[in-house]
Amino acid sequence: MTTDFQSAREALGARLRALRTEAGMQGKQLAAALGWQTSKVSRLQNGKQTPTREDLAGWAHGVGRPDAVAELHGLLAGLGAQGRHRSWRRQLAGGHRGRQEIAVRQTEHTKEIRGLEVSRVPGLFQTPEYARVLFDANAEFRGIPPTTDAAVAARMRRQEALYDPEKTFRFLMCEAALYHRACPVDVMAEQLDRLYNLVGRRRIELGILPFGAQLRRTAPHAFWVYDRTLVIVETISEELWLTGHEDVGLYERAWEWLAESAEYGAQARRLIGRARASLDLT
């Protein structure tokens, strides 16, 4: 069983458990209501068994949340989206929450994450309000259910990994990402303050690629590298999940070449501070 498949199934199980808990029901109570064995409830919410669409509909109605059926079916669709190309249409069918839960699990299974962001702040470093604006805008763009509160909560839970002493995070950002503003100015100011304070943190390496820097290779698009075994590339229509040795090696080289031109430490703070000072907060 592939790691990403299991991560997606665990994310679905975690959502099922949350729905049951929010309803104030014990596992045996839900099992009795649905005519299931208690062991089935346990296997589903622990990511040990793949549910059917009927199982998910039954669970949602059993806990008094029929409105959650579409979201659960979207998470299930994510299980079937394995492979190199994963369309956003399928992954976000029930809103953003499901994909964010998968990201939480993927991060839990990873020791080192490297990433490049060209025009926005990496999700692991986003403030709640910055993330909220992005989720709202993307939901409108794609015409999907606006599960923004749940998606933001999941993204914030994912950020708990930043305090795990067993994990390392190494990110590059183009300086343009400090100026591209898809949010109100006060939200951007708060976001830049957070970035400024993250520079120099233990196990977090944040490099800024300045305007005018000479690059051995230009930054083509955002990508994330997980433990030298997986690269995730986001496009407008789909994600690419690349696991081949040559593909991963190519993206590692791209990251390394870009890292050579990045500014770190005090110089990175200077660039962030300059962007912060450019904001008109009057």
Rank of each mutant, 00 (worst) to 15 (best):
A103H: 02
V104G: 02
T107K: 03
T107V: 14
E108A: 15
E108T: 07
K111R: 15
I113R: 13
R114G: 03
E117M: 09
V118L: 13
S119V: 13
S119W: 06
P122V: 04
P128M: 11
E129Y: 02
Y130R: 01
A131I: 08
A131G: 07
R132S: 11
V133Q: 13
D136W: 01
N138D: 14
E140C: 05
E140N: 07
R142F: 11
R142L: 14
R142V: 00
I144D: 12
I144L: 10
P145M: 11
T147I: 02
T147V: 05
T148P: 11
A151N: 05
A151K: 04
A153M: 08
A153G: 04
A154D: 03
R157G: 00
R158F: 11
R158P: 00
Q159K: 12
Q159W: 11
L162K: 09
P165N: 07
P165A: 08
R170V: 06
F171Q: 05
M173C: 04
M173V: 09
M173P: 03
M173F: 08
E175P: 06
A176W: 02
A176S: 13
A177Q: 10
L178D: 01
Y179M: 07
H180P: 00
H180L: 14
R181P: 00
V185E: 04
D186G: 00
D186Q: 11
A189T: 03
L192E: 02
D193H: 14
R194C: 05
R194N: 06
L195F: 12
L195G: 01
Y196A: 03
R201I: 10
R202Q: 15
G207V: 03
F211I: 06
